[in-house]
Design a protein around this nucleic acid. Sequence first.
DNA 1: AATGAATGAGAATTCATTCAT
DNA 2: AATGAATGAATTCTCATTCAT
Lengths: 190, 190, 190, 190
Amino acid sequence: MARPRSEDKRNAILSAATTVVATLGVSAPTAKIAKGAGVAEGTLFTYFENKDALLNQLYLALKHDMRDEMTRDYPAAQSVEERGRYVWERYIDWGVAFPLKRKAMSQLAVSERISGHTRAAGMEAFGEINAMIHRISSDGPLKDQPPAFVAAVMNAIAEVTMEFIEQDPKHARRYKAAGFVAFWSAIAGK
Amino acid sequence: MARPRSEDKRNAILSAATTVVATLGVSAPTAKIAKGAGVAEGTLFTYFENKDALLNQLYLALKHDMRDEMTRDYPAAQSVEERGRYVWERYIDWGVAFPLKRKAMSQLAVSERISGHTRAAGMEAFGEINAMIHRISSDGPLKDQPPAFVAAVMNAIAEVTMEFIEQDPKHARRYKAAGFVAFWSAIAGK
Amino acid sequence: MARPRSEDKRNAILSAATTVVATLGVSAPTAKIAKGAGVAEGTLFTYFENKDALLNQLYLALKHDMRDEMTRDYPAAQSVEERGRYVWERYIDWGVAFPLKRKAMSQLAVSERISGHTRAAGMEAFGEINAMIHRISSDGPLKDQPPAFVAAVMNAIAEVTMEFIEQDPKHARRYKAAGFVAFWSAIAGK
Amino acid sequence: MARPRSEDKRNAILSAATTVVATLGVSAPTAKIAKGAGVAEGTLFTYFENKDALLNQLYLALKHDMRDEMTRDYPAAQSVEERGRYVWERYIDWGVAFPLKRKAMSQLAVSERISGHTRAAGMEAFGEINAMIHRISSDGPLKDQPPAFVAAVMNAIAEVTMEFIEQDPKHARRYKAAGFVAFWSAIAGK
DNA sequence: AATGAATGAGAATTCATTCAT
DNA sequence: AATGAATGAATTCTCATTCAT
């Protein structure tokens, strides 16, 4: 296992893995991922120690990608309502723009191969966002629940929203708005 | 005239499959399922044509089981609020009482091996419950969304609730109540 | 392994085996044979000790069937030429009328599962015919070869003839005649 | 840049397949073939896509091998009689020298797993030989039959000859001569 | 005697990973 | 470092045969 040289290749593998995992689930063969990345089967293993490492790093990469999209041009100066809506919309946009990333994430999220450690690291990336969500909920119906619970509820509603948009894209705008209302009602109440 | 096919054995296979799929995902080996059921590897295939058939029938069996639990002693005469809460509580109770069933369901739900036909049949079993949820939402924030969307939101919040209870069972009661509030706020609004 | 009761059933199994072996070769599953015969999988084994026994008995049954067709209304009083041609024509007719029997025979003939004993018994059934062929050849080019060799040559030419007729049935008459000429030239010379 | 695929290994697999198919028929397990070739079970599938591909390529390889032996040092300048006899003798010699190849061929020839395409390609390799046989027959008893028919008759007689030689090798010379006479009489007539 | 469920030893692949080139 | 052939354990499914009914 020599030192990998090219960041490009690593990214190509992660990108191919996204597609293949979205399509075939976590049991997708590493050979297909390598092929999708345009590298040899063995090369994959100079960039990732084994398949589990690849999956865990993919999980994290997707989490970060998602987080970056959600906070790009974040309107830090605005009200928490504005910021909440902003993040919501960026999240939905991300899922709609990158359905394979979204599907790969759902596969990984339920997989036994993603370690607790990886999940925790994924959480961490969302620290700021979670803090904001926590503030939103601080005098809503979930005010006594842990921030993670609140964030998970938001996440769950967003996923439903993205799924429905994908199956019925003509009503994307409506679903996006409705999802937000559901999220806001559930979290902030009123 | 020969040994009749045994409903018990079929159930044993489904039950073993629940455990094994919950633990290892849909790529769990059929051999492990057979072993868990106490039958020979080949016997599994006299009860299920192939692994896909088994997974699809398991999905349906779990859906039905869930539905039956949710509607056991259903208080049909009570207000829709009462009934909504009743179904919610039964659902959470089911998930908490049978964590393996719940986990198997999440694995199956995201699997490409579950056919559209099976998913549709699963939906159908929830016709009555979905109708009720639809009524709850009929003058809430989601009143213009399809019933399936509303049901999916409820489902998503319930799953989050069940997960948190499992990880932190001491606060089960609190999560259950909080989840309900979130659900009710999202769906019925106030 | 109780005593079989019905000759009909035994024949149904042999008949189904003919079809199935012709189509799928000797590795055809016994279950398919049983199904073709309209009996249960297990029943097959009360009529035949095991698959090898079935195949060997099928071989013999086909040999006998073939022999019977070849000698039906045998013109014992006619010249050896007449009788030779008669047998030839009956043989070709049999193969054309019962292509599945013919194909099953080719599969069985090259199978390792047919014992030497069975092959010898098959030979025996052709004693009379072989004797006749021997007489035909007695002053032809093969006069110093064992009767079995002469018979095998006839057989081989007949099989080629039947195959060509099956693939090109419009010229059946021509192939039949040509095959006979080849056979007669090879065996009787002139 | 990786280890190149080895022609030797491919040949070893084909050679092992010859032995195993000759002995056990086309249902011979691939594991036995791999073992015979001294490679891992999986390696077989880097050289042949699946078992059918292996069998079809084996069929062709044997056909080519046979053809090459039949035409080695072919006396192109001699009379057609000389050339006919030459080819005949080479053919018989091949079958006697390589009984496993011969037996594998008989198994493959009657197998449903050999495609029409493969059979056609096999035919093609014998173009020159068939042309010669056709010339031999051009004023014999089979002059109005398609060349393929004539070739098939020759082939059939040769196979009988090889089988008898194998069972009774002491009289090899006699069978070889007798077979030739039968062949020549059948094809060329006098 | 007949049935067909039960069995478990194969069968053909597949696949993560290693390693020669 | 990159390649892809090599490996062999694991996987799904088949099938001859047995045996409970």
